[in-house]
Amino acid sequence: MNPSLINWAAVVVAALSSFIVGGIWYSPALFANAWMADNKLNTDKLKASSKLRSFGMTAIFSLIMAANLAAFLADDKTDLTWGTTAGFLAGIWTFSAIAIMSLFELKSWRLIFINGGYSLVSLTLMGAIIGWWR
């Protein structure tokens, strides 16, 4: 790892991409209804939650994830293919962690695949952005 090879603009864009993926993934067009049902949530509960807390902490954790991935990819050989592959592999890792915790929380397989799938897609895109934008 060579920290001087980290493109911080790419890190920020990669972190922002997770918001775009999340907005689509957890929208009513895709998985919002199933996600809410399996979490025993409704729109009233979601509206009453702190948006600043949820989105603020999401932004911080997305930046941490993107920076961590960029650190692993800080190598002269990194390109779009390797960035995408590394992001996918990181997504498999986080999918597995989500699955382990969710199984002990007695969550449904549907919810595991919704949340784990988001992580897999989001990190794959982050890796592609970081790998491409060198």
Rank of each mutant, 00 (worst) to 15 (best):
A86V: 00
T81E: 09
T84P: 01
R110N: 14
T94E: 07
K40C: 01
G116D: 06
T78H: 01
V12Y: 03
F19E: 06
S122P: 08
L123V: 02
T81Q: 13
A59H: 01
S54Q: 14
M1D: 14
W8A: 03
G116W: 00
K107T: 03
L111P: 02
W109M: 12
P3R: 11
M1T: 09
F72G: 09
A29V: 14
L41F: 05
K47I: 08
F19T: 05
N39H: 09
S50Q: 10
A74W: 11
K107A: 07
K77G: 15
N7H: 05
G56M: 01
L69W: 08
F95R: 04
N39T: 08
L106N: 15
T58K: 11
A29R: 14
L5C: 08
K47F: 06
K107F: 08
G83T: 06
T94V: 14
M65S: 13
N7D: 05
I98H: 09
S96A: 06
S27F: 07
L123I: 02
N7T: 04
F113K: 00
L89G: 13
N42P: 05
L69D: 04
K107V: 04
A34H: 04
A15L: 01
I64E: 04
P3C: 03
I6K: 07
T58H: 11
N115A: 12
F61Y: 09
L80E: 00
L111H: 14
L30K: 04
F95V: 03
A86N: 06
T81V: 15
A32Y: 13
A71Q: 07
G56Q: 03
K45A: 15
D38L: 06
L125S: 05
L52W: 12
L30F: 04
G127W: 01
S119L: 07
K45R: 09
I64V: 09
L41I: 05
D75T: 12
I130L: 02
A15P: 08
I24V: 14
S96C: 11
T81G: 03
K40I: 07
N68K: 14
A9Y: 11
I92W: 11
A128G: 10
L103T: 10
W35N: 02
L52Y: 11
T94L: 11
A34C: 03
I98S: 02
P3D: 07
L103A: 13
L73N: 05
S4G: 12
I92G: 02
L46Y: 00
G23E: 07
W8D: 10
L89C: 09
A67N: 08
N42I: 12
A97C: 15
I20F: 13
I114A: 05
V121L: 10
K51T: 12
T84I: 14
M65A: 15
A67Q: 06
A14C: 01
L69C: 09
A70Y: 05
G131E: 01
M101V: 15
G91T: 05
M36L: 01
S62A: 08
I114V: 07
D79C: 05
A71Y: 14
